[in-house]
């Protein structure tokens, strides 16, 4: 059986993926600390600013996260055939069939793997939900970061009611990203073991390996 190398992910998508992933690692680690600063200095005059410093890292990572989300939304509209939103949603016969086949394969009912260059539709939908969660995350984040800016206040009040509600939703959505990360890493490894397309390396190289059509 022969394989051919096919271009799948653009450089912007790969940059988006890794800045998104790394910023989430930093955001979750610093966010947990900000919610519960477990270290307690308990002493005056130590000259250390742990909470201020961790908050600073959180905000820098937040800006990287925002840039990544904006890049992904741009690619949903203007990206290549695999990156567009139309390839991720079950809105065509091809996509619906792919969703069903993926579900059957993931539940070990069928061994058939639907050949497809981009995301499978189950993954594509999950990523869209994650991007929507990310948008809520950054709106609530900026609402809390810029409490005196009118634009963020009017958005924040409309969506969340008050700062405490925004903080609560910001915190709950963090758990979505943690749970997503566990399932995502497991499933890409699972796919890499079960399918020969080189899924894990594709997010570094942008290339996937597909069966060569005779």
């Amino acid at each position: 059986m022969t394989y051919e190398k096919q271009k799948c992910w653009s450089i912007l998508l790969r940059l988006y993926h890794w800045s998104f992933a790394l910023s989430i690692v930093f955001l979750v680690a610093t966010g947990i600390y900000i919610n519960f600063p477990w270290s307690n200095t308990l002493q005056l005059g130590t000259g250390s600013f742990p909470v201020a410093w961790v908050r600073y890292v959180h905000f820098v990572a937040g800006y990287v996260f925002t840039a990544a989300v904006l890049a992904r939304i741009f690619l949903y509209i203007f990206g290549n055939a695999q990156e567009r939103i139309t390839d991720c949603l079950p809105i065509s016969g091809r996509n619906i069939r792919n969703l069903i086949k993926t579900l059957l394969q993931y539940s070990y009912i069928s061994d058939e793997h639907d050949e497809r260059l981009g995301h499978n539709v189950l993954a594509g939908c999950t990523y869209i939900i994650t991007i929507i969660a990310a948008v809520f995350q950054l709106v609530s984040g900026f609402f809390m970061l810029f409490p005196e800016a009118h634009i963020w206040q009017s958005w924040g009040v409309t969506l969340f009611g008050n700062q405490q509600e925004a903080r609560f939703i910001h915190h709950l959505l963090m758990w979505w990203f943690l749970i997503f990360a566990v399932i995502h890493i497991y499933l890409v490894i699972w796919n890499d073991v079960n399918g020969p397309e080189g899924l894990v390396s594709s997010i570094f190289t942008g290339d996937k390996f597909k069966h060569k059509k005779a």
Binding site: P37, L44, A52
Partner: peptide, 18 residues
């Protein structure tokens, strides 16, 4: 302005004294 942003105990927050 938020109370936290002009609270007299804010330095303790930034320096991690709780």
């Amino acid at each position: 302005r938020r109370n936290h942003d002009h609270c007299e105990r804010r330095p303790h927050f930034d320096e991690g004294r709780f």
